[in-house]
Nucleic acid binder design. Sequence first.
DNA 1: GGTCCATATATCGGTTTGATATATCCGCCC
DNA 2: GGGCGGATATATCAAACCGATATATGGACC
Lengths: 200, 200
Amino acid sequence: MDLTPTGTVILGFLSGSEMSGYDIKTRVDESTRFFWAASYGQIYPELKRLAEAGLIEPSDQPGGERGRIAYRITGPGLEALRAWLLNGESTMELRHEGMLKLFFADALPRSQRVELVRAMAELHRGKADRLRLVHEAQRPVEGDPPWLAVLRFGLGFNQWAIEWCDAEIARLEAEAGDDAGGDIGTVAGGGAQAGADRDV
Amino acid sequence: MDLTPTGTVILGFLSGSEMSGYDIKTRVDESTRFFWAASYGQIYPELKRLAEAGLIEPSDQPGGERGRIAYRITGPGLEALRAWLLNGESTMELRHEGMLKLFFADALPRSQRVELVRAMAELHRGKADRLRLVHEAQRPVEGDPPWLAVLRFGLGFNQWAIEWCDAEIARLEAEAGDDAGGDIGTVAGGGAQAGADRDV
DNA sequence: GGTCCATATATCGGTTTGATATATCCGCCC
DNA sequence: GGGCGGATATATCAAACCGATATATGGACC
């Protein structure tokens, strides 16, 4: 049984406690969202598939609570989760629109490039703030659980990014000061040729 | 005319020089891939859409070179590119399987958690190495073009991540040394309950 | 009794991914 | 000159993913 990424998220959460699809989506949005998102459109079909495969099962809890179906993980489910945790694979994708813009920024006069970096800094500041809130909201726990490390990673990354942006802004402004008028004269049209042999 | 993300990548590259879909894909893979990927399945249909919208046009270069169709950006295309660059939006998505695993790692005995972090370190080391190669392959240019900043960002991020992993490994190992035998006794079964109120 | 919000499942169009099919051109070696 | 392999080039597909929204119920509050 090969797990889809969404499948691993579901099993992961269910390994903690019984949950409905709605619960899972809520928890994802307040936790893993920062490095792994999931939508209803993925979660509900995947719950059914996992149940069919016997990795999870609907918990028959008493009392008709609306249409709610809570699921719990089964033995094979736990096994599948552990197998995934230990399979040694580990992908990473970054999708960063600000970086993309910066990459193509030689179609832009120099004075406006710094704006792009400023917007990036703003973005990372926002993420860091939210993570800080989450961090402060934690009740203290003993033993430094794994998810706390993950939170530290998110916070650290965004702080690093903020510093990078600030340094870059400083560089750009210094540069603009250097080459006299470089920030007003370069502009449009030239941009179309300038990057012809761009090749990062 | 609202650009799709892939559309902006295409316009961005074409603002540098004429290219075919194949060229674009190749350039993406050796550059923007690190923070923005694109596949054939996106590029070719998007080229047609952009051409229909008049933002790019097939360049009628002499000599039948196979089925090759190179495109060049038009005036409206350049305008659209600039508008996108300046629209102030900037999303960022991280998809990090290693982090996801770490988040759910209390289903795992402590001794094995460190393996997850080691795998992450390996991943980032690989990315950093490749970026370093790209960096060294650059012919020197005057004036520090924007894409060089982007390269520095990628390199910096991965280096930061490596350091984070190394620190985390050290922490985990120290911890394992602390609570006597903590790395052999905890194990399976307990994991299923341990994370019940996980809430990053 | 009515209003509002949280809970809960379901679905949809559009985008992205990753792999693969198909075919041609070009250099190279025998 | 003939055949091989690799680079060039376009096209397509199933599966996954995303973001938004439709629909409906339960409970709280006034």
